[in-house]
């Protein structure tokens, strides 16, 4: 599903990722961990093409990203659900419309949109907030809207950047349960987190980043 070969990424001559090579199989659930600034977000951004590598090759869902035409980038992104670390919720529309946007972009009809959006909001226990503006929600609620938006289109790949950063232990456990269910249905899941509790004793593979270097990928 995801392959990195000798990938290096620099921001203004400062290396964020150095000679990274790894691969993630279809249907796997994998974690990326490391201290703040170790390059977790950068690694995810390379996958959804928000950034380009300075060196090396990346392939996602069978697409070699380097050879991908500009017009095909939306097609690749439609296979990917993303939980952004900075949320990227739009405050000029309500929660329902924020989640529905993903489906409108995919030209889905209004009836299916309603069904899927409400289902997705119910999954994260926010059905009752669908008319609220994101600004009017708590940090944890906003985070769950972002998760609802990431899963609503049933992506083949789910990228989650600190998905439990603003959540209490119980709610975080609930979110992890959702991710496990989605993964069980076949979606490949990649979660970036510095919260060890999320992957401790799960038997899942953990990619460890240290100052941009991949220093381990064994399960914990």
């Amino acid at each position: 599903m995801i392959e990195f070969f000798d990938v290096t990424k620099e921001y203004n001559n400062q290396t964020a990722l150095r000679n990274i090579t790894f691969s993630i199989e279809k249907g796997e659930m994998v974690f990326v961990t490391g201290t703040s600034g170790s390059g977790k977000t950068t690694l995810l951004k390379l996958i959804y093409l928000a950034e380009k590598p300075d060196k090396g090759e990346i392939s996602v869902a069978g697409w070699e990203t380097e050879k991908l035409k500009e017009s095909s980038i939306p097609l690749l992104r439609r296979n990917v659900g993303i939980v952004f670390q900075d949320f990227r919720l739009l405050n000029n529309r309500n929660v329902f419309e924020n989640v529905a946007l993903v489906l409108r972009i995919r030209n889905m009809n209004e009836k299916d949109i309603r069904t899927k959006v409400y289902h997705s909001l119910k999954t994260v226990n926010l059905r009752h907030k669908s008319d609220s503006v994101p600004e009017a929600l708590s940090g944890g609620e906003q985070q769950r809207v972002v998760i609802a938006r990431a899963i609503v289109a049933e992506p083949t790949l789910l990228l989650a950047d600190e998905p439990t950063g603003n959540l209490d232990v119980d709610t975080a456990a609930g979110i992890m349960r959702i991710f496990n269910e989605i993964n069980a249905k076949g979606t490949t899941v990649l979660i970036a987190t510095h919260n060890r509790e999320l992957f401790k004793n799960t038997g899942r593979r953990v990619l460890r980043l240290d100052s941009g270097n991949l220093v381990g990928e064994e399960a914990e």
């Binding site: 959804y48 992104r77 990917v80 993303i82 972009i105 938006r149």
Partner: peptide, 9 residues
């Protein structure tokens, strides 16, 4: 955000 969610031109 539209672009990141897969919107076409």
């Amino acid at each position: 955000t539209f672009k990141l969610l897969g919107a076409s031109k």
